[in-house]
Design a protein around this nucleic acid. Structure first.
Lengths: 238, 238
DNA sequence: GCTTTTATTCAGCGTTCGATGATTTAAAGG
DNA sequence: CCTTTAAATCATCGAACGCTGAATAAAAGC
């Protein structure tokens, strides 16, 4: 047992009232608004919308609860802001990646190459984009599985990207029907969702043989698994 | 606008106090304990643990909130009871199905046949087991994606079934490595999870071309998609 | 330099939450 | 028949919740 009394009021910040004086080095502290979003992103990704209180968000961000409402209005507005913040970056990058791939490989596109181009951005952000991106990945995964929240943002940013992917797949599998491709994507989407969530289930199931956090390996397996899956659900070429 | 005043106290039940007199036809009303579990199952599957209040469960079950605590103790105990109720049935049936398939097809097993045997029980329960089973499917899907809850039950009932499946897959793909099979299962698990959740995301994405509720179609696609995927991630046979 | 705007904490309101002890009624047990 | 146990409601408690109006301090604008 530690002798530290964590309940003691550590006067780390005097909690001055009113607008804070402007600090020069804006690289360190970052924006207050952003730090609230960071805290909310972290907590929402772990416990869901109802499992997080405004007080917890405010405490983790180091601000008063009223400030959360000042910036984002009701709790739902905070959630939407968190979900929106990275949605555009995330999807623009995926779409650009597959467009670039298609342009550089006219006539020689492969399913493996195209899917890898589409899947790699989220994996890379989750790996190297800092903790915020990892939390966001888990949040998207969770939201995709239960779209009570984020439904509108999903439709606005995520659906067009997926439709573009399916368009390009049609160039590789010209005999494929739309309905086949949508169902195939659905299977891939579930795999992607579960993987980005990094729940640790696989670690336990495999007795440590596989590690959820090993996203590079996960991406490789997913590309191979899904490419074969897409081919299998489409009518064979003549 | 309806002229009905829905706030008026409809005296549908006088709410008598004390132990209720025994009713003869126990086929109609069902057990009170079970009806609380049914209500909780429905609500938890839609809104998650924190998104449901004891009061809502009690109201939907038509009982007092104190009765929920009488049967299940704390709220967490209620959730665990919901999750446990069908876990054994669900997994015993899956394991029996693949064991039966393996015994009836010694030496002639196919991946398609084995996976179909393993996947069909949950799909069939969700389709024909009544609304309770559909809610439970969604709950399992959600819990698999965020195992803050149900982790222990998952490990106790679900992991052994999956390990048995992988054992049998090894008979079909003898050259496969364990790590390949676990990662392949992980991909399938995500697809299964998302599909059983019936979130409606695919309906919207495909502009109505695919229907989430069409589980028979979903199962067919999943068997074909995953069988090819399993083969693709394993070293080719010599 | 004065005024307005922005960013922040404080104090607390009304509501809802999970949970409990007391009470009531009927069944079960001898 | 009497006692004990089981099954239910009622009334309510203290804590936590989302949210807000007022106060305050610095920055921005003119």
């Amino acid at each position: 047992m530690s002798k530290l009394d964590v309940t003691a009021p550590v006067p780390v910040a005097p909690a001055r009232r009113g607008r804070p004086p402007k600090v020069k080095a804006q690289g360190v502290g970052g924006d207050t608004r952003e730090s609230i979003l960071d805290a909310a992103e972290d907590l929402f990704s772990k416990h869901g919308f109802y499992g997080v209180t405004i007080r917890e968000v405010a405490r983790e961000a180091g601000v008063d609860t009223a400030l959360v409402h000042y910036y984002f209005g009701a709790k739902r507005g905070l959630f939407d802001a968190v979900f929106l913040r990275r949605a555009e970056v995330w999807n623009n990058e995926r779409v650009e990646a597959i467009n670039r791939y298609a342009l550089a490989n006219v006539g020689t596109m492969t399913l493996e190459g195209l899917l890898r181009a589409f899947l790699e951005p989220p994996f890379q952000w989750s790996l190297k984009g800092g903790p915020g991106w990892k939390h966001y990945s888990a949040l998207v995964a969770q939201t995709n599985a239960n779209p009570t929240f984020g439904g509108e943002t999903m439709a606005r940013y995520y659906d067009p990207a997926i439709r573009r992917l399916i368009e390009l797949i049609k160039l590789i599998l010209p005999q494929a029907r739309d309905v086949d491709l949508y169902w195939a994507w659905h299977n891939l989407s579930g795999a992607l969702t579960l993987t980005l969530g990094e729940t640790g289930r696989l670690d336990r199931l495999s007795s440590g043989l596989c590690r959820s956090g090993d996203l590079e390996t996960a991406c490789d397996y997913m590309v191979r698994f899904a490419s074969a899956g897409f081919r299998a659900v489409c009518p064979p070429s003549p």
